[in-house]
Amino acid sequence: MMILRLALAAVISAYAAAQPASTSSSLVTYIFGDSLTEVGNNNYLQYSLARADFPYYGIDFSGGKTTGRFTNGRTIGDIISTKLGIPSPPPYLSLSQNDDAYLSGINYASGGAGILNETGIYFIQRLTFDDQINCFKKTKEVIRAKIGDRAASKHVNDAMYFIGLGSNDYVNNFLQPFMADGQQYTHDEFVELLSSTLHNQLTTIYKLGARKGLR
């Protein structure tokens, strides 16, 4: 999964470098993932044990304050946004339904999230990938209410999607001796479970209008 993430970052960087300067400012990104791309969603979950709202998280980020990022500085999503020449999208849970940020990109990533809903369950609260997809579905509904159905469909079709997760399904699930999946499945069976689940999730995002993305 880490190799996949690095490959995605390299390809996106190449994509960004190839874009005309006049189009980069209008690019919209929607980011799904885990702690490697979270920008603060878990700070809005009252009982989450996966939080990065204390020192020294964020000390090397602009402003030097904690932002909910699980790093001292920028996440891979921040770096990609910089490469694309656009602001890093805000966390979904920080927005009100009237917020214009719905039209300029959103970050749904949540520390502890995985492909499977049971992954990271001992963090009590986090946005699983299914939760994030539901948040994106609600996002499209808000956009449709703002600009109409046809324009909303074009908006999500033209946006770029970054999806980076899967390591938690091992680190915080399969490899933990007290988690059921590690006892119930062989490694090959678990890989098949992840693959089939992810296939269905990506199909759902596609049906919601996502067309440009790296998976």
Rank of each mutant, 00 (worst) to 15 (best):
T67E: 12
L45G: 08
I31L: 05
G105M: 15
L84H: 09
D78F: 07
G68N: 15
F129C: 14
L198P: 06
L127R: 12
A18D: 14
Y122P: 01
F190A: 13
L103K: 10
I133T: 08
A50S: 10
K138M: 04
A10S: 10
Y57S: 08
S94R: 06
F61W: 11
F70H: 00
I80L: 15
A159Q: 10
S13H: 04
N117S: 14
I205T: 04
R51L: 07
D158R: 15
L208R: 15
A21W: 08
Y56F: 05
F32V: 02
H199I: 05
S13N: 07
D130E: 12
N41M: 04
D100R: 12
L8R: 07
D34H: 00
A180W: 13
C135L: 05
T29M: 15
T71Y: 08
N43M: 05
Y15E: 13
T186A: 14
L116N: 12
D60N: 14
D78G: 07
L127G: 10
I106W: 06
S153A: 08
N117A: 11
G120P: 08
I121G: 06
L49F: 14
N172V: 03
R51T: 14
G63F: 12
I163F: 10
S153T: 15
L6I: 13
Y170H: 03
A21P: 10
N117Y: 02
R69T: 05
N72G: 02
T82P: 02
L127H: 01
A101K: 10
A16H: 08
I106V: 15
L208Y: 13
K154D: 08
L202W: 07
T197S: 12
I79F: 09
N98R: 09
G105K: 08
G64P: 14
T71M: 04
C135H: 11
N98W: 01
D158E: 15
H199K: 07
S13I: 01
S110Q: 04
T82I: 09
Y92A: 03
V171M: 06
R144L: 04
D78C: 07
N134H: 01
I3R: 09
S35G: 02
M2G: 05
I147C: 09
K137C: 00
E141R: 15
F129S: 07
A151F: 05
F32L: 13
K207P: 01
R69G: 00
G73K: 02
S25Q: 12
K140Y: 01
N134D: 09
D169N: 08
S26I: 09
T37G: 04
L4P: 00
G85M: 14
E118S: 11
G64A: 13
F190S: 06
I3M: 04
E118H: 11
G40E: 06
Y30A: 00
T139N: 11
I86C: 07
L165V: 03
A21Q: 10
Q46W: 04
V171G: 05
R211Q: 11
F54K: 00
N72M: 03
